[in-house]
Computed example of a mutant assay.
Amino acid sequence: MISRYFNPYTDFGFKKLFGEEASKDQLIDFLNQLLPLQHQIAELSFKNPENMSDTLDERKSIFDIYCQNKTGERFIVEMQKAKTQFFKDWSLFYSTFPIRDQGKKGLWDFYLLPVYFIAILDFKYDEKEDERKFRRDVCLKDQDGDVFYNKLHFKFLQMPLFNKQEHELVTHFDKWVYFLKHLEDFDHIPAILNEPIFQKGFDIAEVSHLNSDQYDAYLKSILSYNEAKAVTDTAFDEGKLEGKIEGKIEAMHSVAKTLKAQGITVSIIALSTGLTEQEIEELK
Score class of each variant (00 low, 15 high):
Ser224Cys: 06
Ile197Phe: 07
Leu219Ile: 06
Gly274Asn: 03
Thr234Pro: 04
Glu195Arg: 09
His188Met: 10
Trp90Leu: 08
Ala251Val: 14
Glu195Pro: 10
Lys133Phe: 15
Pro49Leu: 00
Ser254Asn: 11
Ala251His: 06
Arg59Lys: 14
Phe14Ala: 01
Pro8His: 03
Thr273Pro: 05
Ala230Met: 15
Asp144Tyr: 14
Leu259Met: 13
Phe202Trp: 06
Glu50Ile: 03
Lys83Ala: 09
Phe198Asp: 02
His209Leu: 02
Trp90Pro: 01
Gly72Ser: 05
Gln102His: 07
Ser208Asp: 15
Asp109Trp: 06
Gly201Ala: 07
Ile189Tyr: 00
Asn150Val: 07
Leu183Cys: 02
Thr84Ala: 09
Ala82Ser: 13
Val147Thr: 15
Met52Tyr: 15
Tyr225Asn: 05
His188Thr: 14
Phe87Cys: 04
His153Cys: 12
Gly103Leu: 12
Pro8Lys: 02
Ser53Cys: 14
Tyr111Ile: 12
Glu43Gly: 13
Ile197Thr: 10
Tyr111Gln: 15
Gln80Ala: 05
Ala22His: 10
His182Thr: 07
Thr273Ala: 04
Asp174Thr: 03
Gly13Gln: 04
Glu246Arg: 12
Leu210Cys: 08
Glu281Lys: 12
Thr10Phe: 03
Asp126Val: 07
Ile269Met: 01
Val207Asp: 05
Val266Asp: 01
Ile245His: 07
Asn194Thr: 09
Trp108Gln: 10
Phe6Tyr: 05
His167Asn: 09
Ala119Phe: 08
Arg136Asn: 15
Gly103Thr: 07
Asp64Met: 05
Lys164Cys: 03
Ile197Asp: 02
Ser221Ile: 03
Cys67Gly: 01
Asn226Ala: 13
Phe110Pro: 05
Asp126Gly: 01
Gly145Tyr: 06
Lys200Ala: 07
Gln165Phe: 08
Lys128Glu: 14
Gly247Pro: 00
Asp144Met: 14
Ala82Met: 02
Val231Asn: 08
Tyr149Glu: 12
Arg4Phe: 02
Ile197Asn: 07
Gly106Met: 00
Gln85Lys: 09
Glu206Phe: 03
Arg100Lys: 13
Val170Met: 08
Leu27Glu: 04
Gln165Thr: 11
Tyr225Val: 00
Phe12Asp: 02
Glu227Val: 08
Ser45Pro: 02
Lys124His: 12
Ala256Pro: 00
Phe14Trp: 00
Tyr178Val: 02
Tyr5Asp: 03
Ile268Arg: 11
Leu112Glu: 05
Asp57His: 13
Phe86Gly: 09
